Amino acid sequence: MRFSINQSELQNALSVVLKGISTRSTLPVLSGIYIDANNDSLTLQTTDLSLSIQYTVAALIDTPGRVVVPGKLFSEIVKSLPDAAVHFALEGESAIITCDAASFSIKTLDAEEFPGFPHVDVHQKIRIPFLKLSSMVKKVARVVSKDESRAILTGVLITLEETTLKMVATDSYRLAIAESEVPEAAADNFEAVISGPFLQEIAAMVKSDDDVTIALAENQIVVTYHDTMLINRRIEGSFPNYRQLLPKTCTTRVAMDKNHLVSAVKRASLLIQTSSPVRFSIDTEVQAVQVSSAAHDIGSAQEVVSCEAEGESVEIAFNYTYVLDGLAAIDTDQVFLEVNEGMKPGIFKSDNPDNFLYLVMPVRIS
């Protein structure tokens, strides 16, 4: 086996597949990267038996062959090389990697022991422009739960109804919903719960104007983007009925400058202890929101944010990190806060035409 490839192209390929290697398996081969050199291209594969990644890149193949190399070590070696041609040759049980004056010899693993890449029969698929998918994922994925005991909450509910694509995530304390029109998506009543970290990996891939294809198999998700295919297990179970949390009306609605509000919450949080909330005192008569915090034996902070307010004056408090997470997902200059009363959820919304809703459970004010 012998091939040559540009260092930057190989490094890019490795950065994609490296996310699929196993770090905890008792099978050493799963910590490796499977390389198949054939027909003027390299196919790289990794798997942890839950997530499988395959990436194909053009290369100069002198002698075809297959091998498994230690994943992290090989990636670090390639990253350290200059941007020039990398030559790879298999000699016995060692791989010889040379680039300019640098040369490495590393032990390889048996390609026969590497699991075959899954072949799945898909029954539904949708196409989404990558930039739109990436933007929506970044808005909702930070809300997914990290508690593995409730696996369904570690995922994002993705649905397509006619031309409306919707992503929903919740950790029981907050709820994020992003919507977008995708006229060319093409699927009937598509619905799946997909791992939040898996979606974040996809959203972090190289940006382009191309589409991402998401396909559903019986118990797997198949994602295809450019020369990359990713297969991950679907999260089974019933996603919570989030619609019952969304009030049909509100008694108070406030419009504020998002950047001013973010700055005020950050300053108020400087005095906050772990369990202390940020209080929003909405005064509809003077058209202002006082953002405040207080910590026993430390002190207090207050800041007034001007607003356009409708309805009743009200006080409500939130976990400040939850508020900042929601505001970070809003990319319009103006943000709306809708409240019914102090102990009912508050809803942050972006300005039109960006469809984003962020519901936060309140904290009791002492």
Rank of each mutant, 00 (worst) to 15 (best):
E184W: 04
V140E: 03
E76P: 01
P353R: 06
V193K: 12
L359E: 04
E113D: 15
P353W: 09
G32R: 04
G346S: 05
P28E: 05
A151F: 09
D36S: 14
I96V: 10
R66V: 12
E161H: 07
L109R: 00
D354P: 01
Y173P: 01
D110I: 03
K132M: 09
T170C: 02
S281H: 13
L165A: 06
A58W: 14
N259E: 12
A178G: 02
G20F: 05
A329Y: 03
Y34F: 15
Q7M: 09
G311T: 03
L261D: 08
D211M: 10
F117C: 08
P362D: 06
D227M: 11
V137R: 01
V305W: 08
V78T: 00
E76Y: 00
E308H: 13
I282V: 12
Y225F: 15
I347W: 11
D331W: 00
Y55M: 12
K139F: 04
Q244T: 14
A169W: 03
Y320V: 00
A215L: 06
T108H: 09
G237F: 13
I272F: 04
D354N: 10
V254K: 07
P64L: 02
S275R: 14
G196L: 08
D211G: 01
E308K: 11
F356T: 01
S80K: 00
D331Y: 00
I158P: 07
L271E: 05
G155D: 14
E93L: 05
A204M: 06
N241Y: 13
E113R: 13
V222G: 10
A37P: 10
T159Q: 08
D333E: 10
A187W: 06
S263G: 13
D283M: 00
S313I: 00
S94V: 06
I282H: 00
Q273A: 15
P197M: 02
M229Y: 11
V335N: 10
E148S: 03
E9R: 15
P240D: 04
S238R: 12
V156K: 02
Y173D: 02
A111V: 04
L60T: 15
V265K: 01
F130Q: 01
P82H: 09
V182L: 11
A268L: 02
D351K: 14
V144T: 11
V168R: 00
E338Y: 10
T284P: 03
G196M: 07
A13M: 11
V86K: 08
D40T: 12
E315I: 06
L160F: 05
I365E: 01
G155Y: 07
P197A: 01
C250I: 07
L81D: 09
I177N: 02
E162S: 07
V304Y: 14
P64D: 14
E236H: 12
F3L: 08
N319C: 02
T251K: 14
V69C: 05
Q244E: 15
V278M: 02
K132V: 12
L14A: 05
V68A: 09
